[in-house]
């Protein structure tokens, strides 16, 4: 039990890091990581939506779609739930913290099309997922593990975002070839980060 929890945490944060190993949520990773501060707020927003989305989609799939044999509607249901959650979150943030709302700007609605969120929802219901997080059988999988995974996948996402934000703040000031400016140099930086994270998969 404790072992499983630790495996889930390590996998979600490092060895199966959403951005650097699984390639999910690359768009915000490249788009919003220009500054550490915006990276943090984007990361927190994504984490929040991930957990909320999993909280709804996992029971929906397990207890409604599967018994009714309409699994094929999963994508439509999932994306709808995520869109609704994002809309809700947007309204709440707008009310509570207009300044935060300003920083997130265009990227908050874009969380809907952030594949990391749909990715978590799809992964935790996937047949092979239980093994991914160190469970012996699919039957052992439950909502709590799914939520834990979603939470730490979001934190892993935040971690990669923040690291990238810090790097890019420095890269911006460097004299580099014109054609390497922007995305290319960011990709090369991401390449080195991915190499560092690759080591976690070897443990």
């Amino acid at each position: 039990m404790l072992g499983t929890i630790i495996t889930i945490i390590v996998a979600a944060l490092f060895s199966q890091n959403f951005i650097l190993v699984k390639f999910l949520g690359i768009c915000p990773f490249l788009g919003v990581s220009k500054k550490t501060s915006s990276s943090v707020s984007m990361g927190i927003a994504v984490t929040l939506v991930m957990v909320l989305a999993t909280l709804v989609t996992y029971p929906l799939y397990e207890y409604i779609l599967v018994p009714l044999k309409i699994e094929y509607l999963e994508i439509i249901f999932f994306i709808f739930i995520i869109a609704a959650l994002v809309q809700m979150l947007e309204k709440i943030i707008e009310k509570l913290s207009p300044s935060l709302y300003q920083t997130m700007g265009i990227y908050l609605p874009l969380i809907t099309t952030n594949c990391a969120i749909l990715g978590v929802a799809e992964l935790v219901i996937g047949s092979g997922f239980y093994a991914d997080i160190g469970l012996a059988a699919a039957a052992d999988m439950n909502l709590w593990f799914a939520l834990l995974y979603a939470l730490f996948a979001g934190l892993g996402f935040t971690l990669a975002m923040v690291l990238m934000g810090g790097m890019r703040e420095r890269i911006e000031k460097l004299p580099i070839a014109k054609c390497m400016k922007g995305f290319p140099i960011t990709m090369v930086a991401a390449c080195f980060m991915a190499m560092a994270f690759y080591v976690f998969t070897l443990i």
Binding site: Q16, V21, S127, G128, F129, Y130, A131, D132, I133, T201
Partner: peptide, 8 residues
């Protein structure tokens, strides 16, 4: 048969 999450 199935990779069952064996990413490697």
């Amino acid at each position: 048969d199935t990779s069952d999450g064996e990413t490697l």
